[in-house]
Design a protein around this nucleic acid. Structure first.
Lengths: 210, 210
DNA sequence: AGAGAACTTGACTGATTGGTCAAGTCTGGT
DNA sequence: ACCAGACTTGACCAATCAGTCAAGTTCTCT
């Protein structure tokens, strides 16, 4: 199926990692077209021809970043446990997703850039992997709501809202910092407290009638 | 203060509008660096030198788009009425903001692109106009919450969450369509119903005690 | 109709882009 | 020490980039 296991020397491992890290930084800010190999090479501390010794093209670097991304990106959602209590499960999901926005803001921006452009290079993955997982978890949420253990909210749009509110702190970090005005301080603790309260309130099931 | 009123012929009005519309389309997808004057010229149906007869540079086109943007972008928030009932006021704000995402998705993406890059060309405006308005409305929301007419949620993060959830439907439209799977259908009616329910539940004040 | 301004464009420029190549240097195994 | 393969790089290339310019065409006003 996949390519034969590539033999990698120590130097290959180190330099490929340097390149991917630098490329993540540049692509996540400038988008694919806006990024240049020179920027990436400089950020990686390598010469441009040397970088192209490890990757055949700009496309290849970008593709390798995107491939690795979606899997880890969806981990928090995979962790939504059908056996757990609905409300804590969903609040836990929100917390994990926010944690990812804090820990991997560059990955979040890379993804955002890709979607903003209409998802030209990731369309296939979204259509299959992403949609399957979301549909599965949406069904779970719908079941919980049907059992009266959760507020009756559209599951797909609920997932969208969780993505939006959590990734906002990575993708729009510049705006968040400017508006809060405390440019040194970490907005994530307050964000976590707010989102926990928001979803705890919104998702609490209606009072049982009669 | 501002430049002397520019005398504009019919042709100037038409062609400037053509250029700005084409540029909005291209910049909002590709970002500033990723967009090219040739793309914009082709989308506008003009030759590149002709386009540069109306605008001195690529930067100038982009700047003109950004300048016009923030004002209309903040209109829904300005409409938050201190004299109104807190809950309907905020739900109305959510509705107006979602309507803007539906009617002006390119503007939303242009803004998102700019913030993703760290807001290099709009930093000043955000620091002054945006922050002032947000602080004013956050104070209003805090007052409402203090009076027990609204749930006690952090006002700044509440505003962030409204921005995030509504703009999501413009900026991440490609993903929303793919996940919902009904690629022809309009996701906005369901989104409006969901967001109205979400915020109505989350923002309802706690039951008065004793 | 005619003059002057407004508009349009093909051909161009220097800079930057992604990518190549031959000729080097370094590294690890013997 | 030696060699083969791994790594590195300066110089280079064709394509594309933002922007210029001179020479044209079209419009507007009288």
């Amino acid at each position: 199926m996949s390519a034969p296991a590539p033999r990698r020397t120590r130097i290959q491992k180190r330099n490929r990692a340097l390149i991917l890290d630098a490329a993540l930084e540049v692509f996540s800010r400038q988008g694919f077209r806006g990024a240049t190999l020179d920027q990436i090479a400089e950020a990686a501390g390598l010469s441009k021809p040397n970088m192209l010794y490890y990757f055949p093209s700009k496309e290849a670097i970008h593709a390798e970043l995107l491939e690795g991304l979606l899997d880890t990106w969806l981990d928090p959602l995979r962790g939504l446990d059908p056996a757990g209590e609905p409300l804590p499960e969903l609040c836990g999901y929100v917390r994990r997703k926010l944690q990812m926005a804090r820990d991997f803001p560059r990955e979040s921006r890379l993804f955002a850039n890709e979607i903003l452009q209409g998802a030209p290079r990731i369309d296939g993955l979204l259509r299959t992997d992403l949609k399957a997982l979301v549909d599965e978890k949406a069904a779970l949420i719908a079941r919980w709501a049907g059992e009266g253990r959760l507020a009756p909210l559209d599951p797909h749009h609920l997932i969208f809202s969780i993505w939006a509110t959590t990734q906002h702190y990575a993708d729009f970090a510049a705006q968040v910092e400017l508006v809060l005005g405390e440019e040194g301080r970490d907005p994530f603790p307050a964000a976590a407290a707010f989102l926990d309260a928001l979803y705890a309130r919104a998702l609490a099931p209606d009072r049982a009638q009669g």
